[in-house]
Design a protein around this nucleic acid. Structure first.
Lengths: 186, 186, 186, 186
DNA sequence: AATGAATGAGTGTTCATTCAT
DNA sequence: TATGAATGAACACTCATTCAT
C-alpha cells in the first residue's frame, strides 16, 4: 500500500480535530474518515488524547525547526523576516495543524505543549530584543512586554493568513515593517 | 440572603470554566462550588451551554463598552492608550472571564461570539488606521494586516497580564509606544 | 371565595391529565393552571399519584351510581337503555374524567380501579344475561363472553361519543337495538 | 450466537413494556433482562421511544395483514369469523404485543399508530356494514355507531382472551353469533 | 494486521416533593 | 392557609475503549 494506515488515521484526525475541536471529534469520526475499523485506531494510538498531543507536539517541533537563529554576518531584519515567512508558509501549507494549535488546543490539559512553545518563543524574542538593545540597534523598550506583543502580532497574522488567505512573503514584510518602524509617521 | 443564588452559581461557573474549560467542567463541579443542589442550577440557567454563552456574551459586551471612540478634540494616542488601559484593567479585575474568553472559548460551536468580537475590533482598528493614514498621521501600511497585528499584540499583552501580572497603565504605555514608534532606533 | 382552592386544583388536574396523560402531566402544569403555588398543591393532596387515583375512584364510583338495577316491574330493555343513556350523558358532561378513565389510565399501578370497575360491570352484565337466559328472554349465549363483548361495545361507544360527539339518547337506542337484535336481517 | 442481540433486546423490551408500561420501563430493565450492556441497546435502537413505536407499528401492521377482505364467492359470515379468529389467535400468540397495544399505549404522544389503526378498522367495518345493508343482508342500523360497537366488542374480547385465556375459534364463533343474531330470543 | 460488536462509566437534565417564611 | 426557592434521586443517552475472531 502506498500510504500506511497510521498516516491515514493521522490525516483524518488532523481534519476532524481542526474542524470540530478535540471534544466534538469522536473516534468514530476519525476512523470513518480514515476508512478503517474502530479497533484499528487502537493498534496505532494509545487513545484520543495521546493522538491529539502527538499532533500538537509534532507541529510545535516542526515550527521550532523553522526558526533559525539570527547570524551576525547578515542583515538581522532580513533574517527575522525569513523566519516569519517560513512560519507563515508552514501555516499555509499545514492549515489543519495550524488551526489545531491556534484555535483548538484550549483545554488546560491539552494546551500544555502549545503554551510552552509560545513561552519559549516569547523568551527567544525577548533575548533577541535585549541583544538588539544592547547593540544599540533597538529602542529601549521593556523587552518582555514587547516580546509578548510581537509574538501576539505574529500569532494573529498567522490566524489571519489561515482565515483569509494571503501571501506569506508579503505578510512577513508588512509585519516586519510594522514592528520595526511602528505606525507613526513622525 | 446577602448574595443571590444566581450570583453564587455564576461565580462558581466562572471559576470552574476558567480553570477547566467548557468540556471538563461538570455541572456537579459548579453546583458543589456554589454550594447549591443540582436542580437549583436549572432554576436559573437553561443548561451548561447557555450559561457558558451567557458568560461569553456578557464579557464581550462589557469589553465593547470599554472602548470609546477617539475624539478629534484630544490627543488620539492618549485616547487609544486609555482604551488599552481600560481593557487591561478589566481583564485584571475579571481574570476568570478574561481567561475564558482568551483561552477557553475554542470549540467552534462556542467561540462564535468571541470571534465576532475580535473581528469587529480588527475592523474598528483597521478603520482608525485608514483614517490616521488619510490624515497623514500614520505611515502608509496595509491597514488590515497591521490591524490584525495590533489586535494580536493587545490580546497577547492581556494574556501576559493575566498570567504574570503587571500594571495596566504601564503596560498600556509600553504597548502604545511599541505600536506607535516601532522597535528600530533609527 | 366562591370556589375552593382544592376544587381549583382538581379541575386543573382533570384538564391536564385528560390532555397529556399521567406521566406527561407535571405538577407545575396543574398548579399553573389552577393559579396556586407549588406548595399549595401538597396542602390538599399527598402527591401526584394520590390525586390521579382520587380522580379515577371518584369517577368510577359516580359511574357505578348511575347504573340502576333492572326492576321486574318495568320493561327491562328500556331500563337497560336508560342505564346506557345515563352513562353516555355522564361521559359527555364529564368529558375530561371520561377521557382519563378510558384513555389515560394505562400504567398497571394506576389502572387498578378502572380494571376492577370494568370487571364488576362485566360480572353484572353476565349475571343479568344469565337471568335473562333463565327467564327465556335471551338466547343461550355464553354469558361471560357476551358480557365482555357488550361492555366493549359500550366502552367504544362512549369513546366515540367523546371523540366525535353525538346524542346520548339516540346512541343508547342504537346500541341497545344492535345488542338486542343483532345485525342480520333474517 | 443462535439468536441475535437485536432480537434479544426486542424480546426483553416487549416483556418489560407489557408488564410495566412505557414510562415505568427503564432502559436498565430492558438491558438487564436481555443480558446486554447499556450501550448495546443504543447500537440497535435510537432510543426508548423509537423502540416502543417500532413495536406498536410492527404489531398494527401485522394485525392489518390478518384482516382479509370479504369475498363475494364465499359465505361472508364465515369470512368475518375467520378474520376474528386470526386476530384472536395472533393476540394469544403475541400476548405481550397485544397487551402493549391494548393497554399500554395510552399516552397521547405514543398512541397515535394504535388510534389510527382502530379508526381504520372502524371505517372498514362501517363500509362492510353499509354494503351489507345495501345488499339487504343486514338490518338498517346506523353503520358508524354500530361499527364502533362491533370494534369495541372485538377489542374487549381480545382483552378477555389475554387476561383469562380461551379458544380463539370458539370465541370467534360466540362473538359472531352475538353480533349477527343479537341477544333477544324473539 | 484488521475488524466491529460489545462494554459501562460517566453526565446533563428533569421533576415530584419539601420546608422555611 | 399560602408561598416558591431549593432539593436530590432518578434516568436516558454518549462515547472512548476493549477483545474475541
Amino acid at each position: 500500500m502506498s500510504v500506511g494506515t497510521r498516516e491515514r488515521i493521522l490525516k483524518a484526525a488532523k481534519e476532524e480535530f481542526s474542524r470540530r475541536g478535540y471534544y466534538r471529534t469522536q473516534i468514530s469520526h476519525i476512523v470513518e474518515r480514515a476508512g478503517v475499523a474502530r479497533g484499528t485506531f487502537y493498534l496505532y494510538f494509545k487513545g484520543k488524547e495521546e493522538l491529539f498531543k502527538e499532533l500538537l507536539l509534532k507541529t510545535v517541533s516542526e515550527l521550532r525547526e523553522l526558526i533559525k537563529p539570527v547570524e551576525l554576518s547578515r542583515d538581522p531584519k532580513e533574517q527575522v523576516r525569513e523566519n516569519l515567512e517560513r512560519i507563515l508558509r508552514y501555516a499555509l501549507e499545514n492549515e489543519e495543524l495550524a488551526r489545531i494549535v491556534l484555535f483548538r488546543a484550549c483545554e488546560p490539559e491539552l494546551s500544555g505543549p502549545v503554551r510552552e512553545f509560545l513561552n519559549s518563543i516569547v523568551k527567544l524574542t525577548e533575548d533577541s530584543l535585549k541583544k538588539g538593545i544592547k547593540m544599540g540597534l533597538l529602542k529601549e523598550h521593556d523587552p518582555h512586554a514587547v516580546a509578548r506583543a510581537v509574538v501576539g502580532a505574529v500569532k494573529e497574522t498567522v490566524a489571519g493568513l489561515i482565515e483569509e488567505g494571503g501571501d506569506p512573503k508579503e505578510l512577513s514584510e508588512k509585519l516586519l515593517s510594522f514592528s520595526v518602524g511602528g505606525l507613526w509617521r513622525d
